[in-house]
């Protein structure tokens, strides 16, 4: 299997890495170089271990308030905060204030 320029563009957009299009051909070549080695896995016979669940035990927590405390303020670490909110440039899907302020923010990207 090999990865195409449009595949790389797609995954770059999914992962928001802001890939410079000038670097695209180089990145495609590098990824193909790496993925070429992965093809060896297609030849491994995995029929003997279909779908075993890991048997690691999972630790659960009691429902008791007691979060790990922050030793620095949120304002200290956040790139931008206002009135206690983290702030980001207004979403394109909400270009202008509208509608019911109590309504949950939803656009097609939210689940």
């Amino acid at each position: 299997m090999s990865i195409s320029e449009s595949d790389v563009r797609h995954v770059a957009s999914l992962s928001r890495v802001g890939l410079d299009s000038a670097r695209l051909p180089l990145v495609v070549a590098e990824l193909n170089g790496i993925l070429g080695h992965m093809d060896a896995l297609q030849r491994v016979d995995v029929s003997s271990n279909a779908n075993e669940d890991a048997t690691r035990p999972m630790m659960l927590a009691d429902d008791v308030v007691g979060a790990v405390q922050l030793m620095r303020s949120r304002e200290d670490m956040a790139p931008a905060m206002r009135d206690g909110f983290f702030v980001v440039p207004r979403l394109a899907t909400h270009a202008a204030p509208e509608g019911n302020p109590a309504a949950r923010a939803v656009d097609a990207e939210a689940p």
């Binding site: 931008a80 206002r82 009135d83 206690g84 909110f85 983290f86 702030v87 980001v88 440039p89 207004r90 979403l91 909400h94 204030p97 509208e98 302020p101 949950r104 923010a105 939210a110 689940p111």
Partner: peptide, 18 residues
């Protein structure tokens, strides 16, 4: 659940409450 985005509080910003 996710947090809450508030779009009408600040003029050019979306405010995030987690």
């Amino acid at each position: 659940d996710a947090g809450k985005s508030v779009h009408d509080r600040f003029a050019d910003w979306t405010a995030v409450d987690l």
